[in-house]
Amino acid sequence: MNILMPTIFHPYTGGITYHVDNVIKHLTDISPYNFHILNYNFQGELKKLPPNTWVHKVKYIKGIRGPTYTFMGYSIGKKLIEKYNIEIIHSHYAFPQGFLGALLSEKYNIPHVLTLHGSDVLLLSKHPVGKILFNYALKHCDRIICVSKYLKEQLPREYQDKSEVIYNGVDFSIFYDEGIDEDYGLFVGSFVPQKGLYTLIEAVKDIDFKFKFIGDGPLFREIREYIERKGIKNIQLLGRKDQMEVAKYIRRCSFLVLPSTSEGLGMTLLEAMASGKCVIGSNVGGIPELIRDNYNGFLFEVNNVEMLKEKIEILVNDRELRRKLGKKGREFSKRFSWEGVAKRLDTIYREVKGDRLI
């Protein structure tokens, strides 16, 4: 089966790239799928790709990336559909990818599956213009996949019947309990406002314990300058790391913190649990679907610096509790597998293709 997939992908890093990479790897284990990815343009060539995967670069103009990706992607997408007999379009993120998928689906009467990952539902759909684009993508798709119950609950009522929840999986080959605790707290994620980094910085700046932040983004330079200006010595900014490096830092940390103000699910929480680590997360979005307070970690109220500081200090001062909560998290994480995600997607692909033939 030939699948056209408008999505961000390697060499770009992040949760969607990681999700798509794992989905493709496990789907090709089930059936001889071929994937044609419409990715944002990038320099050079990719050294390694999943099986049966071709990446097609879509040029865009910086500052108007979404509209120009849609315009250029539509032209490339039409050629790919006609050349490779595309049978299903599976878009990741509502705009521009889902919007582009909807346009191509309408033109060629091809089934369209749309996976919503978080900020498209929580932020894009609330924007006056973004809402129009978001609703068009949802209207013109056969099936909607949400990565958490919380995201599904945010969708308009008319789309509830064709939407379902499929949680992300965990790659247990790199996220596992190594039995090592090197006495540092960890944050992994994008340096964007909704990750709540300033709340975390204020909570930990006076704690006698090391903290490492992995990631980059629009706020990276601002946060680095803030840390230097305030003379904060216990926070180390490591910048962007590849997946293998991230996994190593997670396996060796004491605990992981996700202080988001908005979050679709929070994949780093699952990865930390799979590595036998306890976690702390804000009580928002899909995070409470993963953290059971006082069972596999702690929840704190959004932007509550004192509450977060209190939870962190509990773990800093009790290595045995860290281990105990981490073991429970490890057991909890076992229900999230990429094999399960791929099996369900394989069924969905066959269902939507069959529905169009009726």
Rank of each mutant, 00 (worst) to 15 (best):
N85G: 07
F172T: 10
P128M: 12
E82V: 09
F95M: 14
I86S: 02
Y150M: 06
E153V: 07
H117D: 13
C146Q: 01
G169Q: 04
I88R: 02
G73Q: 06
T68V: 03
F95W: 15
I86V: 11
E106A: 11
Y136Q: 02
G130A: 10
D120H: 04
L103Q: 08
K79A: 14
K62C: 07
T115H: 07
Y93L: 08
S148D: 07
F99G: 03
Y60H: 12
H117I: 13
K152T: 04
Y84A: 10
Y69E: 09
A102G: 09
I132Y: 12
V58I: 15
I174W: 01
S163E: 11
Y84I: 00
L103N: 05
R157Y: 09
N109P: 10
K78R: 14
A102F: 01
L103P: 03
K78E: 14
H92R: 12
Y159H: 14
L104Y: 02
L123Q: 13
E82H: 05
K107C: 00
Q97D: 12
P67R: 07
N109D: 15
S163K: 10
I76A: 10
R143L: 09
I144A: 08
V121M: 05
V165G: 02
I81T: 02
K131L: 00
Y167V: 01
R157Q: 15
T68D: 03
I89H: 06
G66T: 00
L151P: 12
P111S: 06
K149V: 05
Y60G: 03
L124W: 03
E82S: 09
P67V: 05
L49S: 03
S125L: 08
P67G: 08
Q160Y: 08
H92S: 09
G101H: 01
S125V: 00
N168F: 03
H90L: 04
G98F: 02
S91C: 08
A137L: 12
H140P: 06
N109T: 05
E87P: 04
D171R: 09
T115G: 11
L49G: 05
V147R: 02
I89V: 06
V113H: 01
K79G: 14
N135F: 01
N52F: 03
R143S: 13
Y93N: 02
